[in-house]
């Protein structure tokens, strides 16, 4: 299974994502520069966390318009699984692959700690490793993680089972405690917490290892 991690200027979780994917697949992912126009052959794409383009204009706004994103959008529309973590989630909303927007945290603080998430839907390729209602612990580290969408969109996300992860104790003011959502086709996930940071007991947790292993198994 071939995987790709997109690297934007000021991505800072790209190498963590590479290690997590390597652990789950046994193969080294391709790191793809934002200025490239084409993706290598890939079965799974990760948009990593960070502060791409210094968060200029809006978090993720510049990255979403970078050359590689045209290729990512095309692949995503063709069904290739895409995960956007933290800044990656922001980029996915800015690119129109996921609804809503990630706004400044309601408390204005940069939040940086472990959070407990409830797995709301385990029927997605991104959550099949977990039980529905299972609590998992991933760290958050963001300033703009306050998920916002109009109530009609939120209702649709809920009724279609597209809220995959929900905060138990909301750290950022996100609407309906939403931590992670999928697109309507179910092949694109955006989440603010960082599963790639908890892939070994040495790092304080292994729920992220289960996340990547489950995803890799589901993608095949």
């Amino acid at each position: 299974m071939k995987t790709s991690v997109i690297v934007f200027p000021a991505s800072n979780c790209d190498r963590d994502a590479v290690v997590a994917l390597e652990q789950a697949t046994g193969k080294t992912p391709d790191m793809v520069w934002h200025g490239d126009a084409e993706l290598p052959a890939t079965d799974l794409i990760v948009l990593p966390g960070g502060f791409s383009y210094g968060d200029y204009l809006r978090s993720g706004a510049m990255a979403a318009r970078s050359p590689i994103m045209r290729a990512v959008v095309e692949k995503a529309k063709g069904g290739t699984p895409v995960v956007g973590i933290c800044n990656g989630f922001q980029i996915l909303t800015e690119a129109g692959l996921l609804p809503g927007a990630l706004m400044r945290n309601a408390g204005l603080d940069f939040v940086c700690h472990s959070v407990t998430l409830m797995v709301e839907n385990n029927q997605s390729i991104f959550s099949s490793a977990f039980e529905k209602g299972q609590a998992v612990n991933f760290p958050v580290a963001h300033h703009d993680g306050n998920f916002f969408a109009d109530s009609e969109t939120l209702d649709r996300l809920e009724s279609e089972g597209r809220v995959v992860f929900r905060y138990v104790d909301n750290p950022n003011g996100s609407a309906r405690d939403i931590a992670g959502i999928i697109n309507d086709a179910g092949n694109v996930l955006g989440l603010m917490p960082h599963p790639e940071r908890v892939i070994s007991p040495l790092l304080g947790g292994v729920d992220g290892a289960a996340f990547f292993k489950g995803l890799v198994e589901a993608v095949g």
Partner: peptide
């Protein structure tokens, strides 16, 4: 529409 503003918010 395409860059400067985010119509969601």
């Amino acid at each position: 529409r395409r860059l400067l503003a985010n119509p969601v918010m």
